[in-house]
């Protein structure tokens, strides 16, 4: 688990002892990793029964609610970081979630599969919907409804008046991509905060 570069990247951005909210926490592996390596506190949010169960088994505190309904159960500014790991592409109202993230936490960290990856572009040029390691679904059974490229995400950040603090892009082999990230990157990891923070 510790070998996962996306986990390590996120860990390096998080202050020790921080209070973290992980939206779409899956089996809780990331929160557990952060707790073990950064002594963080906090909660996961998950809707799926099996994942809720896995999170509890993983010693992670998990709240079973639907992200689509917003985060009204969480007070404003109650977390240091809010994570949205490989989830933004699967929610209906991605913009609302981003706004809610900035309401409840000081900084946001989002990871998503880069739709601009050359393989995806190539598939589309071939006239097919992309299927890849990062996007392993067929068009008819995919949970992913809001796919975007690095450029697209950065435009959303600008629209929401968010300042990107860090960006790390990984390729399919979990290596950091430094050149042509929007073409060669498979997974994007962003850290951002509101330009209005502290004002």
């Amino acid at each position: 688990m510790a070998k996962r570069l996306d986990f390590q990247t996120i860990r390096d951005w998080i202050d020790p002892g921080a209070n973290v909210l992980d939206l779409g926490c899956g089996d809780g592996a990331l929160l557990r990793y952060l707790r073990e390596t950064r002594n963080t506190t906090g909660y996961g949010v998950e809707i799926d029964d099996a994942r809720v169960l896995a999170s509890i088994a993983n010693d992670v505190d998990v709240i079973q609610i639907d992200l689509e309904a917003g985060l009204s159960g969480f007070e404003s500014a109650s977390f240091d970081y809010v994570l949205l790991s490989q989830t933004i592409q699967a929610v209906r109202n991605s913009e609302l979630i981003m706004r809610e993230m900035m309401r409840v936490a000081r900084q946001g960290i989002v990871t998503f599969p880069n739709f601009g990856h050359w393989r995806h572009r190539f598939d589309i040029l071939r006239g097919r919907m992309p299927v890849s390691k990062a996007l392993p679904y067929q068009w008819f059974d995919t949970p992913n409804i809001h796919l975007c490229t690095l450029h697209d995400f950065e435009l959303l950040c600008a629209r929401l008046n968010l300042r990107v603090l860090n960006r790390v892009v990984l390729n399919e082999n979990q290596q950091v991509v430094n050149s042509l990230p929007n073409l060669l990157g498979s997974l994007a990891i962003y850290r951002f905060e509101s330009n209005l923070a502290g004002t």
């Binding site: 909660y43 029964d49 999170s55 509890i56 505190d61 998990v62 709240i63 079973q64 007070e75 109650s78």
Partner: peptide, 17 residues
Amino acid sequence: VKALLDNRHRVSYAEIT
């Protein structure tokens, strides 16, 4: 759950279908 979260108490919440 909200009251517990607001206190930062440790809590898990499961909504069983």
